[in-house]
Structure formats: structure tokens, C-alpha cells
Design a protein around this nucleic acid. Structure first.
Length: 252
DNA sequence: AAACACTCCAACCGCCCAATT
DNA sequence: GAATTGGGCGGTTGGAGTGTT
């Protein structure tokens, strides 16, 4: 026989919002058996749901290692900076925000941050000032802009690699914890997430470049000459911009 | 108080890819 | 190698909650 055994039959499966009873069943089942196979879980748990729905409910809502509620200013900055570098790759962004799910970040971006950036005159897709010129008059990027462009590309690739490593590490720890002990716990053996270190390193690199004069004085003040340079400067100034846009009322 | 408009987010859908047979 | 699945991802949306007229 080709392939695997057939997937769960999709007749009579419940959809829509989860009830507290369903949540309890799902939690109890994962506590007792771990989630092992999502496909097999609904039957074990006595749920009229498909495995996919169970997985979504667990990863986005029931998992105990989830922080819910208001995003801090620091988290907002991180999301915007990572979005400028990575685009709509929410799972990659989420690996740098401990305890936040990609779904929550995506929602927060769509309902809050996108609008906020627009109000600040920043295109939320390109992260460029809306009326900004795309290139220098002669069309040739400056040397510093080229360097910065390479730097941005390098950082983007590095973030991607880190996100991948984080995923693989998570997968390994899940595999080793299959079974009753599958509930996430504060484990001293699991490495801390890469978190904000990448952004800090990047910010440090920016400061160094600016200080050592790799950026010409004009580069810091003149209209931006390339998309990458514009983006780099924007990222550098983001914390101050955000503080201004929130009127300082936001505290991390 | 009712009707309508808007906001927000949990959950769905469809697609993709690696793994499995 | 082909067929098929499970799981992950990003885009989208239904509907509850809130605000406005």
C-alpha cells in the first residue's frame, strides 16, 4: 500500500469556538499522554475535533508557557524591527519573542502595529517613509549604503538560520519528552531562546559603523539613498519613534 | 433603546514540505 | 519514485464585544 494510513474521517467533527469542557478534555489528555500524534489525540481525549484543530488550540491558547495580554514597548519594537528584516514570517519572528505565539504576533501586527506605523507616515509593508525617494539622483547606491545593504542581508540570513535552529532544538526537546512528561516545564537543560540577542548585536553594529565614520555625515541627515539604508536608519530610530507615537505612556 | 459601524482575535482554510510507506 | 500524510505556516474571516449615531 502506498503512503500512510488514511487521515481521520472528517464526518461529524465539531468546528468553531472551543468550550471550557473541550479545553479540559484536551488539557487532561495532553497531561496524561503528551500530544505525540495530533491525529490520534481527539479519539484519546474524547473530542469530536480534528487533530489539526486540537494542535491549534493547544499551541495558540492552552499551552502553559504562553504569555497573553498587552505587548510591552520592547516587544513592539522587536516585532517591528524583525518585520522590517523578515517580512510576514511570523513564526520566525515569534522565535525571538519568548512566550508569544506567531498567531498572536500576527494579530497584533494586523490590528495595532500596521495602523500605528501608517499614522507615523511609515509604509507598514516596506517600512519606508511614505514619501521617501527610493534611490539617489544618479541611481547608484553609496558605498556605505551598499555595505549596509550587505549587512541587512547578512542579518536577515542569520535571523533565518537562528529561527531554524530554534525550531530544530524545540523539535528535539519535544521528541525527547514524548509521553506523559510532554507538558512544557522550566527545564534547565533546554537552551534559552535566541531572543533579542540578534537585534542587540545588530544595534551595536549600527552604532559602531556610525561612529567609525563608515557612514558619511551626510548619510545620517540626507534623504535616504537606498531602500536598505532607509530601512537600517529607520530601525535604528524606531525606539524613539515609538516612544513619541505612544506619547511615552507605554511602559515595557 | 435600537440600529448600525467598527475593532479585535480565535479559529479556520488552503498550501507547502518533509516524512513515511 | 510515486503517493499520501502530518504538521507547520501565513492569509483570511466569523462573530462577539464595543463604540457611535
Amino acid at each position: 500500500m502506498m503512503g500512510r494510513s488514511p487521515c481521520c474521517e472528517k464526518v461529524g467533527l465539531k468546528k468553531g469556538p472551543w468550550t471550557p469542557e473541550e479545553d479540559q478534555k484536551l488539557l487532561a489528555c495532553i497531561e496524561e499522554h503528551g500530544h505525540g500524534s495530533w491525529r490520534a489525540l481527539p479519539a484519546k481525549a474524547g473530542l469530536q475535533r480534528c487533530g489539526k484543530s486540537c494542535r491549534l488550540r493547544w499551541t495558540n491558547y492552552l499551552r502553559p508557557d504562553i504569555k497573553r495580554g498587552k505587548f510591552s514597548l520592547q516587544e513592539e519594537q522587536t516585532i517591528i524591527q524583525l518585520h522590517a528584516l523578515l517580512g510576514n514570517r511570523w513564526s520566525a519572528i515569534a522565535t525571538h519573542l519568548p512566550k508569544r505565539t506567531d498567531n498572536e504576533i500576527k494579530n497584533y501586527w494586523n490590528t495595532h502595529l500596521k495602523k500605528r506605523l501608517s499614522k507615523m507616515g511609515i509604509d507598514p509593508v516596506t517600512h519606508k517613509p511614505k514619501a521617501d525617494a527610493l534611490s539617489s539622483p544618479d541611481g547608484a547606491p553609496s558605498k556605505s549604503a551598499t555595505n549596509l545593504s550587505h549587512m541587512a542581508q547578512w542579518e536577515s540570513a542569520r535571523l533565518e538560520a537562528e529561527a531554524r535552529l530554534a525550531r530544530e532544538s524545540k523539535l528535539r526537546s519535544q521528541l525527547s519528552q514524548l509521553g506523559p512528561s510532554d507538558l512544557p516545564k522550566p527545564s534547565p537543560s533546554s537552551p534559552p531562546p535566541p531572543c533579542l540577542d540578534v537585534l542587540r548585536a545588530w544595534q551595536g553594529a549600527w552604532a559602531k559603523e556610525a561612529k567609525t565614520g563608515l557612514l558619511g555625515a551626510g548619510d545620517l541627515d540626507s534623504p535616504t539613498s537606498t531602500l536598505s539604508f532607509s530601512r537600517m536608519r529607520y530601525l535604528h530610530q524606531l525606539p524613539a519613534l515609538l516612544r513619541r507615537s505612544t506619547g511615552g505612556a507605554f511602559r515595557g
